[in-house]
């Protein structure tokens, strides 16, 4: 199978389309997937603290939103806006700084999502719309130059597809603090492409998806 991928070889083609290559590259991807076993998860997750919020946010999302798909938000851009898994992302678009009496209108788009014609993008939902001081954590970058060079290293993002059985529901590989609304990233036109789910109308996410503990589970042994 690997040879098949290699056959694509050293070719530069103007007419080659993405579709033709997908099959071949998927094979390649499987072969070269670098398995990482590190998660920025909690050693002892207490997910039920946020149960109420997960259900409420589900109720508030209109069904039309859930079936939408714009496909322009990817894990690549998702992580590019962060410094480590779980850090608050930077603001990737211009924000109004003109001084008027109006409050910051981030939530106008990011509370309920939807298409923004000006930016030609679907607004991703914030998982925590109850917090109003957006720019407490989210900043807009005005330069890509560092003040001095930097020696920053962090862990890899959680690996996808860690289901125990083929076709089984994958576990939740990340911490839920500040990210209690599954729909924000996993459903609708603002969803992240690779982790978008088609069955969000089922509502109770954690019926099937359980937290993946960071440390190996202590297995039960009979004595």
């Amino acid at each position: 199978m690997k040879t098949k991928a290699k056959k694509i070889g050293k070719s530069v083609s103007r007419t080659a389309t993405v579709c033709l290559l997908i099959v071949g590259f998927c094979v390649l991807a499987v072969q070269t997937l670098n398995v990482r076993q590190v998660y920025a998860g909690d050693a002892t997750p207490s997910f039920d603290d946020s149960g109420d919020k997960i259900f409420r946010s589900y109720e508030e999302i209109p069904p039309n939103y859930m079936i939408g798909d714009s496909g322009n938000r990817t894990l690549a851009t998702y992580y590019d806006r962060r410094q480590y898994p779980g850090s608050p992302p930077v603001i990737p678009h211009p924000v109004e700084t003109t001084f008027s009496k109006n409050k910051t209108e981030c939530l106008a788009c990011h509370a309920k999502g939807g298409w923004n014609a000006e930016l030609a993008a679907s607004a991703p939902l914030t998982p925590h719309p109850e917090k109003e001081a957006c720019r407490q954590c989210h900043v807009r970058l005005n330069t890509d130059k560092n003040f001095v060079e930097h020696d920053w290293v962090s862990i890899s993002p959680p690996r996808l597809g860690q289901a125990q059985l083929p076709g089984g529901p994958p576990p939740i590989p990340h911490n839920l603090q500040m990210r209690e609304n599954c729909i924000a990233c996993h459903t609708g036109p603002g969803a992240v492409v690779e982790i978008r789910v088609e069955h969000s109308s089922r509502g109770n996410c954690r019926q099937c998806h359980v937290p993946l503990p960071m440390t190996p589970l202590v297995r039960f042994e009979r004595k």
């Binding site: 290699k6 694509i8 070889g9 050293k10 070719s11 530069v12 083609s13 103007r14 080659a16 993405v18 290559l21 590259f25």
Partner: peptide
């Protein structure tokens, strides 16, 4: 440029995604 790219020995394949 494309001819030049083809000569790179460290390049296995190049596939266009946008033109």
């Amino acid at each position: 440029l494309q001819a030049q790219l083809k000569k790179l020995s460290c390049l296995q394949s190049l596939s266009m995604t946008y033109g």
